[in-house]
Design a binder for these strands. Structure first.
Lengths: 107, 107
DNA sequence: CTGTTATATTACCAAATAGTTATATGTCAT
DNA sequence: ATGACATATAACTATTTGGTAATATAACAG
């Protein structure tokens, strides 16, 4: 396999179910590692491993509250996924119908 | 009981760069396997392998033209990704107005 | 200091992944 | 029927992934 892969492919990062779950948890509010562990099926090191990946992908940031590490969601990088999806939305979208009409008129 | 569907996690399916590339190629128009091979970095069996995965995920359909197998895009399943993304969009676009979103992405 | 709590890192392993070559299958042309 | 063409499948393999247990690091409490 001579495949040169990017260090952080966002698509691969969100492909993992547990990571998506963590992201979803942080959407509610920032949370400590312990809180996330409680709400996941993973061991503490397992969670920390995923958090590291999310951190390096820029999807979370951290702050500290005494001994606790608080993880905050930073969703902006997900824009990349959204952007890739853009040209496909027309295949199912109903919410862009008005826009399509608008564009048809413009041409 | 053998009702075992393959757990086709759509996120994992589109996580692979070559598969996204194939999907993008089929957005232009339906294409034969050979055409896709020409436009990829993969061997023919490599492409066929990915096509099978896409087929089983319902992201492509096939038709035949003599000896050629023509692959057609079927984007609907991507809706799932789009749906997951939905609550995150507000983080990078304050207004969810469809036209504004579209114009932002056109830049 | 000492012990406790919270998190990160290390070392290891099983399973999954994605690639290859070789081969099978199916269709067309002669 | 035979050979060429188009694609799929099989068999194999290196790499990556995601999990765990054990351990390190760091901050707080007394």
């Amino acid at each position: 396999m001579q495949n040169q892969r990017k260090p952080t492919n966002l698509f691969e990062i969100i492909a993992e179910t547990n990571r998506r779950h963590i992201i979803d948890l942080l959407r509610t509010r920032p949370r400590s590692v312990g809180e996330i562990v409680e709400r996941s099926q993973l061991s503490q090191p397992g969670v920390s491993k995923h958090l590291r990946i999310l951190r390096e992908a820029g999807l979370v940031t951290t702050s500290k509250e005494s001994q606790k590490h608080i993880y905050h969601l930073r969703a902006e990088p997900l824009k990349e996924i959204d952007h890739w999806l853009e040209p496909y939305r027309q295949y199912w979208s109903d919410r862009l119908d008005a826009l399509e009409e608008f564009l048809d008129e413009e041409e």
